[in-house]
Design a protein around this nucleic acid. Structure first.
Lengths: 329, 329
DNA sequence: CTGTTAGCGCTTTCAT
DNA sequence: ATGAAAGCGCTAACAG
């Protein structure tokens, strides 16, 4: 069933049907009703593909994340989807695993499908987009990086000051009297590096010596957090505060500290990062940092929408995280 | 840049370019190379929209879930996306919030965009699809329900025996000597009802009296689990086992039990459901039930693919959950 | 206010 | 092996 069938049955031309379909004003009320009746009768839906071919837009945006199973990305992607849905766009979900190949593949598909815009969620894309192979896929389509930055035509950023965020955690620990701090670093993305630097700078400001010796590299998992703490204990390191780059590692750290018979926060204080459900499940609930994924998502959608529809002036911006008091620090 | 530009520059007709693009065999090796050179030079990508208009397929499937932020759905959607990506399909992500309107809207969009197939994830759709307003949107497009069932043309199911799953948890508790069991019920979806019934039947089999009085309704959240346990304690109920319909409520239950000075599992044993990261963060880690979302997702994709491509014979199927021992039971 | 016509970029007969 | 031409379902410019 297409526009011709409708036209024939309503006894009008396809243009008139098209006009009715698109709520154009120049249709006689009588004709409009006649056409609408036929439309309703068949519960007719115009083909978005055919429309897309004409308007060269399918009202679709691609959202690339590393892995939607990571709660932080899930929250971001969720909000992006909801916001775009409100605005009449559908979202194509792309899990890249942080792989260059998958990213390239998806950018290619996005181009072929002529998506209206692209959102890259996560600072991995910061690094990935520098690869020449990816570089020449950029600039064709409006793009917003949520917590990333890339130098290309029509690419904008919504940044989160993660260094500042970790700094807040350090300040918080110092204020409650902690002196022997360690930082649990999990990944090696730009964001992870900024967090680490935020720790080092804040520690130095607070007069805490040791610098990089206070950074423990571990994996981004519950076990990663536990392992790191166990290592500290085994090595007989003195510590009264553990700053973590992720709630999940912080939860692991708390687990290991308490299993060792130490009290949190009395003996060792701990801070997480992300203000996730993980933080609340942890016992005691984590003191953590809210890096506001929903806000980042909203601003990203706003930015991309204005880019697509060429409405408002648009510019990149930066979000300041906030500390969320819990029971671990 | 389109197929005409390429044809002109290569000095051939558009049919030949199309043949090269689609790896058809009837092209002289020489011509092929000539065309490929031009293709490469411009890094040409054919328009998926135009192709879609001809083939009436955009190689896209829609995945509807309640809320991608719920880990269980995130895992399912993730696997579905990865599997479809491997097969050359993109995924349109749809968060319906379990709302009828949103579901209807998305089914309509899916129809307009002529998606190749639809996956409905979660047993809410079981109920939602019964609404007449939704009913007449079904049957047009191949559909698979992950953990749901609906009576419509071209609709199939991958079911999870959640009643059996909760039964496993009850058996486990009974085996370790628990007699005073309670069940924490969180939602009111079909799946939640099946779980509840699974509890009641298994309890009765084990000779535990009380029936429905042993079911506590609460909200699906950490607080929901805590509230339920606090209520039991306040009412002075005797209990040595708490079976939960979700890991998150189980984590809340454990929290409340321990805060009351009771030991888990010695005084009160607890079981969760979903085998999620929540279960591992909980201290002690939850004994939980694995309802295998990844497997469900894989089978759903397989089923939908065979439906779309009309290859193998297809049929609905059912998954059996497994108990995962932890430290709470 | 309504109809005719020319595309949008591609695939696919049907000739040659 | 290659090209010409029709058509997928729609929008929009133009004519009346």
């Amino acid at each position: 069933m297409n526009i011709y069938d409708i036209a024939k049955e309503a006894g009008v031309s396809i243009s008139t049907v098209s006009r009715v379909l698109n709520n154009k004003s120049n249709v006689k009320e009588n004709t409009r009703r006649k056409v609408e009746a036929v439309l309703e009768k068949h519960d007719y839906r115009p083909s978005a593909i055919a429309r897309g071919l004409v308007s060269s837009s399918m009202r679709t945006v691609a959202v690339l994340t590393v892995d939607i199973r990571v709660p932080h990305y899930a929250r971001t992607a969720y909000t992006i989807e909801r916001e775009f849905s409100r605005r009449g766009y559908e979202v194509m979900l792309c899990n890249t695993g942080g792989e260059m190949d998958e990213t390239a593949k998806y950018l290619r598909v996005a181009t072929e499908k002529n998506v209206d815009g692209i959102v890259l969620v996560g600072s991995v894309f910061n690094t990935i987009c520098k690869v020449p192979e990816i570089q020449n896929l950029l600039g064709r389509i409006p793009m917003v990086l949520a917590n990333g930055k890339v130098d290309a035509e029509r690419s904008y950023s919504v940044l989160v000051d993660d260094g500042y965020g970790v700094g807040l955690a350090v300040d918080h620990l110092v204020k409650r009297g902690c002196q022997e701090l360690y930082y649990l670093k999990d990944l090696d993305t730009v964001s992870a590096q900024l967090k680490c630097r935020g720790f080092l700078e804040a520690a130095e400001r607070a007069g805490i010596k040791g610098g990089k010796r206070r950074v423990i590299e571990t994996s981004m998992s519950l076990k990663g957090g536990m392992d790191a703490v166990e290592k500290l204990l085994q090595e007989g390191k003195k510590f009264d505060g553990v700053v973590c780059g992720e709630d999940i590692t912080a939860a692991g750290a708390v687990k290991a500290i308490r299993r060792a018979g130490l009290k949190v926060p009395e003996d060792v204080a701990v801070t997480g990062y992300n203000n996730s459900e993980y933080a609340r499940i942890c016992e005691p609930p984590l003191t953590t940092v809210d890096n506001k994924p929903e806000l980042v998502a909203m601003l990203s959608v706003q930015l991309l929408t204005s880019l697509i529809e060429e409405t408002d002036a648009y510019s990149s911006c930066t979000i300041q995280p906030e500390i969320v008091p819990g029971g671990t620090a």
